[in-house]
């Protein structure tokens, strides 16, 4: 842009501002805005953006590492659950075999006690048994006291004295 042209633009703007016609002032403003000198971008711009992207984007090595660890963790979870299942199956198998090996009388009597389904049940059972023991003891005591009250000691026969 030449100096003369600039002066013309400014003059036009100046005229437009003094007049009341918005059209001319709008045109002058548009010219002023569009004749703003553009800022230039250095040639290294693209390269520096690519460097930034490379730093931010996960590398191929990192991606393969993540994929491998995910795969192995999944495999280990599957193996652990399988071994747990196998152990429980073996235990139940051994138990059923052992049960068969016992004599029939013991099978009926003892195994009922052994085959407690869960720990909570066993606790309940234990507390029940403790309670039953206590009640038994109380009953025994009560019986004893009842005995003392119910069967009084007979007085000695008079003839002996």
């Amino acid at each position: 842009m030449e100096k003369q042209t600039l002066d013309q633009i400014l003059q036009q703007s100046s005229i437009a501002n003094h007049s009341e016609n918005d059209f001319y002032s709008d045109v002058a403003l548009k010219i002023l805005l569009r004749t703003m000198a553009p800022v230039t971008v250095p040639a290294s711009f693209e390269a520096s953006v690519l460097n930034k992207v490379a730093l931010l984007e996960p590398t191929k090595l990192y991606k393969s590492f993540i994929a491998a660890t995910t795969f192995y963790s999944l495999i280990s979870v599957v193996l652990i659950s399988f071994s747990t299942l196998l152990n429980s199956e073996i235990a139940s198998f051994q138990f059923s075999n052992a049960k068969e090996m016992l004599p029939k009388e013991i099978q009926q009597q003892k195994l009922e006690i052994i085959t407690t389904p869960s720990l909570s049940n066993s606790n309940e059972q234990r507390s029940n048994s403790e309670e039953s023991v206590l009640t038994k003891k109380k009953n025994v005591k009560r019986k004893n006291t009842n005995k003392t009250t119910q069967t009084p000691i007979p007085p000695p026969p008079k003839g002996i004295e």
């Binding site: 842009m1 030449e2 100096k3 600039l6 002023l32 703003m36 000198a37 553009p38 230039t40």
Partner: peptide, 17 residues
């Protein structure tokens, strides 16, 4: 920041506006 191909006078004008 202005285009270096411009003459000093034009650069001055562009800068100013």
């Amino acid at each position: 920041l202005i285009d270096s191909a411009d003459s000093p006078e034009v650069k001055y004008d562009k800068n100013y506006v």
